[in-house]
Each structure stands twice: as structure tokens, then as C-alpha cells.
């Protein structure tokens, strides 16, 4: 029998006597696995990884600890229930009820738009996705939106919403100039921030539903539309909620869009007429912190610390909720 040269090419052969370096080896009498042959490079790498992990923990604890310390020091309950006043004296400049409510309104508008649009896009991409060229285009679009800095989104939003036909979304001055700044205009740009997160989480949830679950619905005589409506969307519910909650966290924390698109007044200032609040201007916790910090005009760092602490708590709570939602209510097929 002749040996094929190509298949019997010389090369390193596994040596049964000596295990590869770093491979787990079962040593008799040790009761478990032991590592052998750690090189110095591996040891340094491991130490570096440890160090990086620990440093991150330190940073996280420092942020929360410092903000909590400052927050507890300066936060008073009446700050949460009183409106900001224009005053240089910090004892009379009021609290941040309006920014708190502003954050809430903006978040609700943002996810209110992002959830239906994002779920629609995700369903189309995963369940239809045809023609394939269009699907790729949509995916690229989502990636571009996800990668655009929010200040760019904000400037773009201002450009769009200052067009004369966009007048209904904000305030129109005597001469016909459209202001372009309102909860609605800022909220729609916030929706763009949340949108990629909603799309991503929903797609992932839809992808994790086994094919045979869809087929079981078809096999019962259901069409695609009712399968999506009655099986897929309920199954993806926790994924959608996760994406929406992540998006809420991002919206709460965004400053650029608020500064550019929500006006400069610290108080919530509704417009006249129907939906006046939504067409009016105001502030959020982020713009309040920015304005009261040394870089803003108020120069009231104590108020800034207190508001920042509240903001941090809100965002941490949202992140905590993400973990909770992800674990619960997620249907598990084997």
C-alpha cells in the first residue's frame, strides 16, 4: 500500500505523552484539573486582565459613590417638587421639578415613536426582508442612525423642523419664522437614538424563536400576518421591552438634542392651543445639570450635583430593569 505524500506530509504531530502548554491535565491523585506550563507572557496577560477588571469596578464605584455623597449632601426633597427660578442666589433658585418632568415627557415621546417604528422595521427585516437589496439598505440606514453623534442629529433636527411646513410641531413667530424647538421636535430626534436599540433587541428576540414554532402556527392554518401578531410579537415582548428600556436610558442621558432642540428656558413653557405642552419648550435633567454646572450660566454646582444624582439613579434603575425584563417572560423552547 503506497502512502500519499500529500496526506502524509510531515509536521508537528500530537504527542500523547506531553500535553500542550496550558492544557488542562488530569493528574492522578490531585482530585481535579491542574494547569501546566504557564508561560511568563500568559501570566502577565492574565494579571493585566485582572487589573483592567478591577479598575473598571473602582471607576464604577467611584462614580456612584461620589455622586451619592454629593447628592445626599445637596438633594432636598423640595427640589423634586419645585420649579426652577431665575435667581443668582442658590437658596432662591428653586428645584428641578420641570427638568424632571421634561425628562419624563421627552422619554415617553421618544420611546412612543421608537417602539412602533422599531418593531415594524425589525419584523420586516427578520420575517420578510425582501428584496434583499432593500433589506441591506435598511440595515445600513439603521447602522448610520446608530452611529450618528447626537449633536449631529440635533442640528439636523433643527434644520428639518425649522422648515415652514413643520410649523405645527413647534412655535411660529409673527413673521412666519418657525422656531423648530419643542418637546415634539426634540422627542422625534430622541426616537432616532432609541430606534437602533429597539430594532436590535427585537430582531434578536425574533431570531431566537425557533423556526418550528413559526411552522407550528402555519401548520394550524394561520397565515404569516396572524403568526406575527399572535405568536412572534408576544414571544418577542421581553426583547422589545429590553430594547425600549435601553433606549429610555439613552434618551434620559442625552444632552445635545435637549440643548439644541428644547429651547433654553429652564421652566416648562407650553404654547397656546391644542397640544401646547408638546409644542412648547422646557428642559430636562441633563440640560439642567449642564446649565447649572460651572460651564453653564447658572454656576450652581450644588443644584447640578443633586440633579445629576437623580439622573444617575433613574438611568441605573432603567439598567436594572433591563436585566430583570431580560430574565423574566422570555419564552424558552428547548
Amino acid at each position: 500500500m503506497s502512502i500519499d505524500v500529500r496526506t502524509a506530509a510531515p509536521g508537528p504531530r500530537p504527542n500523547p505523552e506531553r500535553p500542550a502548554p496550558g492544557a488542562p491535565v488530569k493528574l492522578p491523585g490531585t482530585g481535579g484539573q491542574q494547569q501546566t506550563g504557564w508561560s511568563i507572557g500568559d501570566r502577565i496577560g492574565l494579571a493585566a486582565a485582572w487589573f483592567c477588571g478591577i479598575s473598571l469596578c473602582v471607576a464604577a464605584v467611584a462614580i456612584v459613590g461620589f455622586m451619592a455623597w454629593k447628592g445626599v449632601q445637596y438633594l432636598h426633597l423640595e427640589m423634586l417638587t419645585s420649579s426652577p427660578e431665575a435667581s443668582l442666589d442658590q437658596s432662591t433658585s428653586g428645584g428641578f421639578l420641570d427638568p424632571l418632568v421634561g425628562t419624563l415627557i421627552l422619554t415617553l415621546i421618544g420611546v412612543g415613536i421608537a417602539i412602533p417604528v422599531g418593531v415594524g422595521i425589525a419584523v420586516w427585516l427578520t420575517e420578510y426582508g425582501r428584496p434583499a437589496g432593500l433589506a441591506r439598505l435598511v440595515e445600513s440606514g439603521v447602522e448610520i442612525v446608530a452611529g450618528t453623534p447626537s449633536i449631529v442629529l440635533a442640528i439636523f433636527g433643527l434644520l428639518v423642523f425649522q422648515q415652514s411646513f413643520m410649523g405645527v410641531f413647534s412655535f411660529t413667530a409673527e413673521g412666519g419664522a418657525v422656531f423648530g424647538r419643542s418637546f415634539l421636535t426634540a422627542g422625534s430626534m430622541m426616537a432616532l437614538i432609541a430606534l437602533p436599540l429597539v430594532i436590535g433587541a427585537t430582531r434578536e428576540a425574533l431570531h431566537s424563536i425557533p423556526r418550528h414554532v413559526r411552522e407550528a402556527s402555519y401548520a394550524l392554518g394561520k397565515d404569516k400576518a396572524s403568526t406575527i401578531r399572535r405568536v412572534l410579537l408576544p414571544s418577542a415582548r421581553s426583547g422589545i421591552a429590553t430594547g425600549a428600556t435601553l433606549g429610555m436610558g439613552r434618551i434620559c442621558g442625552d444632552t445635545a438634542i435637549v440643548v439644541v432642540l428644547l429651547g433654553a428656558s429652564m421652566q416648562t413653557t407650553p404654547e397656546e392651543g391644542f397640544g401646547g405642552l408638546l409644542r412648547g419648550t422646557g428642559s430636562t435633567l441633563t440640560s439642567y445639570v449642564y446649565n447649572n454646572s460651572p460651564s453653564g450660566e447658572g454656576n450652581a454646582p450644588e443644584k447640578a450635583y443633586a440633579a445629576a444624582f437623580v439622573l444617575l439613579m433613574i438611568v441605573l434603575l432603567l439598567n436594572f430593569a433591563v436585566g430583570l425584563i431580560g430574565k423574566r417572560n422570555k419564552p424558552q423552547w428547548n
Binding site: 425557533p210 418550528h212 414554532v213 411552522e215 407550528a216 402556527s217 401548520a219 394550524l220 399572535r230 405568536v231 408576544p234 414571544s235 419564552p331 423552547w333 428547548n334
Partner: peptide, 13 residues
């Protein structure tokens, strides 16, 4: 013509 699959697949309801 009904069908049953290899993996049990009740819907999440």
C-alpha cells in the same frame, strides 16, 4: 392536515 414537531412548541400563552 395537522402537524406535530420533534420539539414540543407550545406558544407563549
Amino acid at each position: 392536515v395537522g402537524m406535530l414537531f420533534q420539539q414540543p412548541n407550545p406558544f407563549p400563552m
